[in-house]
Design a protein around this nucleic acid. Structure first.
Lengths: 162, 162
DNA sequence: GATGAAAAGACTAGATT
DNA sequence: AATCTAGTCTTTTCATC
């Protein structure tokens, strides 16, 4: 799907505040509210915008412990298999197949250290996991929950505009 | 700040769809719309809800390449120093101090491999970085952009409710 | 094909009970 | 916390470019 500059600005505005009104957005992109709504509807149905979410302070809701775990797997473990396993474990908030020594990297979040330990234990019990290497998060320095949109299409070379 | 079960359900509903109306939420938690708004306002001003954002498919906006990079730093590099550096680099979408061999883990997102390379190069140029170890993401299997809320306070032991 | 204008219905936000 | 009310927003329809 092709995104024109107005689409991009609308997406950026919705990333900043997903609850802003169409009228508000329209004001900033010089379009009427219905026109904005039509574009947003199209962006949603085409999958560019997957949804809207509230950004919640993990600590405030009791989610204080997290870790990144490198997974070493048996010979031929498929990404689909890994994905299915990741989805089975509710503590998994991110999972990626990666290059390098390990086969996958899993991002775990738990309420406390014992919860993390329990989640890790369950993960290690997966039949295809041969070993793991854990990196416990000591402090979260930065976390951009939504991918920032490219502001300058074609000119940017790997660095998102602020 | 204390969250009662209704607060938690409201948060969960807003995480599912940050654009749902107060009336809609009120229906599902058996409260009037104004009552829901008051609670949401309180959650926002107390910092439990930090904001609302649109979830955008990174690929759809040209953000196709990512990596996790372990940072090895000089003797005494402070978390504050790391954080400041991370914020200077727009490709950094996540940064954590960690236990284990490395001192920090940085999550990078770029438009393509050359963008990633460039971002990595800049990161390595930071004076406190002695070496790095990169894990290029081959495929994103799972990514829960918002931390899931605990549904059963006190009973859950490290695993978020679905 | 996309935009703007207008109208009906729904929602928000503040005051009151 | 619910109700009420005025003002605003959303959403559909329709005409226009």
């Amino acid at each position: 799907m092709r995104l024109d500059p107005i689409d991009q600005r609308i997406i950026a505005l919705l990333q900043e505040d997903a609850r802003s009104s169409y009228a508000e957005i329209g004001e900033r992109v010089a379009l009427s509210a219905p026109a904005v709504k039509r574009r947003v509807d199209r962006l949603r149905s085409s999958g560019v915008i997957r949804g809207y979410t509230a950004l919640v302070d993990p600590g405030a809701v009791g989610w204080t412990t997290e870790a990144f775990v490198e997974l070493f797997c048996t010979g031929r473990t498929s990404p689909a298999q890994l994905k299915a396993a990741a989805l089975r474990h509710p503590a998994v908030v991110g999972a990626y197949t990666i290059s390098g020594e390990a086969d996958a990297l899993v991002h775990l979040r738990a309420m406390d250290m014992s919860g993390l330990e329990e989640a890790l234990e369950k993960l290690r019990a997966e039949p295809f996991v041969t070993s793991t290497r854990s990196m416990i998060v000591l402090s979260r320095l930065v976390e951009t929950l939504a991918p920032r949109i490219v502001q300058d299409v074609g000119t940017a070379k790997g660095s998102p505009a602020s």
